[in-house]
Design a binder for these strands. Structure first.
Lengths: 222, 222
DNA sequence: CGACGGCTTGATAAGCGTCAACTGAGGTGG
DNA sequence: CCACCTCAGTTGACGCTTATCAAGCCGTCG
């Protein structure tokens, strides 16, 4: 009941008694920056609900190339996209707190609570929609469009958890952004400076301030 | 019971009476090549289970750039990734047959059949895993790797529906492949001819034959 | 037979990657 | 207290992969 992200996560719309049951199964957990939460290929014995901080989710190729498939933020759920083994790795970017659940308990719970399963299913389809949006971005957008779309999407996500502002926090490194957007760190850096030079954004410590959202929206739509 | 793809789709693991119920709700539908099944933004009043043929699922940017987010084949389910409106467009590549269900009936059904919902949820998470694989491909792989991964993935999909062969049917056009792989039609064509010249594949009408799956697997893993 | 669409091939160019040097903030230790 | 190191980020020069533009091929169909 005291959870800050309850209404933004799958826990919304649970009855008080169900919430209590869920609470009894949850293990509060925390991770330091750069700490690994799980690795691709690990047998998935735990699922997590992020309550604070930011997590990067990524896949690696044997030669070291990395693709970040998403950033998890408060309210996000980790552990859906696998049957037995995690399909990607996850590690903390900032200090992270999460509710962890044993996979067995989680699995048993959703078998008895259809509407919790329904919430999870809705969450999964939402993730799928985001993934398809990202395919469009990676396959067909220019570097500048990717950056602009990313910033607007981050604004959207912060606002969904009650932190709406034209100043966007970006706790991840340039390398993380690059690996999310299918670019190099140099291209990310150059593109951000170019946007700053045209007064579209203002680069601030650990984030950017959006100075011309109208122009950005046009770039993203085009 | 006579459905060729029953065991490969969400309909597997249904009890006979449930199958009968589902059957009573299903409307057999068919589409001619290039016919639109639905368009991005349409209110989603129907969901589909493909029984034969191939469908392209794609998103468009206002300036005409296209990203194919997936190809639907027998056993695949269309209509998951939306709450009220379709997030992408779909049209038939080959002649297509499908079971269509009204969204209302579908929604009511899964509310009363938790294990059907469970199947759908598993299907959705599988789709999500594929989408993340595709992000890796689009963001970090070279043109040649994309083509090779695509061919191997198509082989895998055909084999899942009982058509395992080193000769891969490719009913879609070069343009469709290009828009799926984030390339241009010219790069797809050139890369395929290069693979053919090195005797890695053999280009045949409406498909390719894999001549050196070992080398291809190495390219895909790298 | 001619037109058309899908595909291939070639020449050229652009966007982004690569390599490398530089800057500035933060941390460490003599 | 300041020299030094480290690391993330920025900037510049250059080059490669892939896009773009353009021409030609081939099977199909009216």
């Amino acid at each position: 009941m005291s959870c800050k992200v309850r209404l933004a996560s799958v826990c919304a719309s649970l009855a008080p008694d169900e919430l209590a049951l869920l609470d009894s199964l949850a293990h509060p957990t925390s991770f330091a920056p750069k700490e690994t939460i799980f690795s691709q290929g690990d047998t998935a014995q735990t699922v997590y609900n992020i309550t604070d901080g930011m997590v990067r989710l990524y896949k690696l190729l044997p030669d070291g190339r990395r693709q970040i498939v998403g950033f998890a933020m408060p309210g996000d759920f980790l552990g859906l996209a696998m049957r037995d083994a995690f399909g990607f790795s996850a590690d903390a970017i900032t200090p992270v707190t999460a509710c962890s659940f044993s996979r067995a308990a989680y699995s048993a719970l959703i078998d008895t609570k259809p509407h919790l399963l329904r919430r999870l299913h809705d969450y999964a389809t939402h993730e799928l929609t985001l993934a398809q949006e990202q395919m469009m971005l990676l396959g067909r957008r220019t570097a500048e469009e990717r950056i602009v779309c990313f910033l607007l999407a981050m604004r959207e996500r912060w606002s969904k958890i009650g932190r709406d502002s034209v100043t966007i926090e970006l706790p991840m490194s340039r390398q993380d952004m690059a690996d999310f957007l299918g670019l190099t760190i140099e291209t990310v850096s150059r593109t951000l400076t170019r946007l700053a030079k045209t007064k579209t954004i203002l680069i601030v410590p650990d984030g950017v301030r959006l100075m011309d959202t109208q122009r950005m929206a046009n770039m993203a739509a085009a």
